[in-house]
Simulated scan of single mutants.
Amino acid sequence: MSEVKLIGVVGAGQMGRGIAQVGAMNGFKVIMFDINADGLKFGHDFIAKQLAKGLEKGKWDQGFVDSTLANLTATTDLKDLKDCDLVVEAATENKKIKFELFRNLDEIVKPEAILASNTSSISITEIAANTNRPEKVAGMHFMNPVPVMKLVETITGLETSTETIELVEATAQKMGKTVVRADDVAGFAVNRILMPMINEAFYTLYEGIADAKGIDNAMKLGCNQPMGPLELADFIGLDTCLAIMEVLHEGLGDTKYRPCPLLKKYVTAKRFGRKSGKGVYEY
């Protein structure tokens, strides 16, 4: 396969709908799947609203909006992805769920298709081992929010072929993204750096070195970061941050990756950040 034309996206949440929107905006035919019909409708409606906002601001014309929406279809039946050239999984950061999805996708999607994961930390080699096409499995880690952030981190598993990773990267570039290739090591490049910083910010709060606003202001004003680490953690989701830290801690075996007890306590209390209305801050 020399070119990707039809993309399947598994998951209509924050990441999935963003990937689907960017794909459709850049001329790909996109099928967005979610097992939850209400969540799927919300994701599709959210994309339509984002396009309408861009139209109002003069970013694009009505023809562009119409063609983008025409490129996008939604389904609650995973079998509708059978003819896709590339499927990007953007489900929750949970090994059991991802492994089951890839086993199902491997059975459903045409054998020459590429299966990619938007995972931010889970081993691509391990995911690929749940399929009969490990050479056609790769990591395709988009940043949040997908329509705004320019980076796609691609990850090469042990069995990923050169042809596969090059086609994944070419597809990301056609979506208007800049690609950074990372090896299949826990956390890859972005989260290997980002998550320990966020975790250390939680330790700084936990140990009473400074309050939350002080920590965030120190990093924004002292290190020129656009968002403070605790504010960013709330934006990402504290449950997601904890899941990634646990993967780093387990995968690398170093105590410096031990998740902060305060982060664990917030997640236990269902203080997930912006998406739950309360994390480090209230929304």
Rank of each mutant, 00 (worst) to 15 (best):
M1Y: 14
S2K: 15
S2W: 12
L6P: 04
G8D: 03
V9H: 02
V9D: 05
G11H: 06
Q14T: 15
G16D: 10
A20Y: 07
A20D: 07
G23N: 05
G23C: 14
A24M: 06
V30M: 09
D34L: 08
N36I: 11
N36M: 04
G39V: 05
F46R: 05
A48T: 13
K49E: 15
Q50L: 11
Q50E: 11
K53F: 06
K53Y: 09
E56A: 14
K57D: 06
G58M: 07
K59I: 00
W60T: 01
Q62C: 01
F64I: 13
F64A: 14
D66R: 04
N71C: 05
N71D: 05
T75P: 00
L78V: 07
K79T: 15
K79H: 13
D80A: 14
K82I: 01
C84H: 00
L86A: 10
L86E: 07
V87I: 12
E89N: 09
T92M: 09
N94A: 09
K95V: 10
E100W: 03
L105G: 06
E107N: 14
V109I: 14
K110V: 13
L115R: 07
A116S: 12
N118Y: 10
T119W: 08
T119A: 12
I124M: 11
T125V: 08
I127R: 02
N132Y: 01
R133A: 04
R133N: 06
V137K: 05
A138F: 09
G139V: 04
M143D: 00
N144Y: 02
V148M: 10
I155E: 00
T160W: 03
I165W: 02
E166R: 11
T171M: 02
R181F: 06
D183R: 13
D184N: 13
V185P: 01
V185E: 12
A186T: 09
F188L: 09
F202W: 11
Y203P: 03
Y203W: 15
D211Y: 11
K213Y: 15
G214Q: 14
I215K: 09
M227R: 12
M227N: 08
E231Y: 02
D234E: 02
F235H: 09
I236F: 03
M245A: 12
E246L: 14
L252S: 08
K256N: 11
C260H: 03
K264I: 06
V267M: 08
K270R: 15
F272E: 04
K275A: 01
S276F: 04
G277K: 01
G277R: 00
G279I: 01
Y281H: 00
Y281E: 00
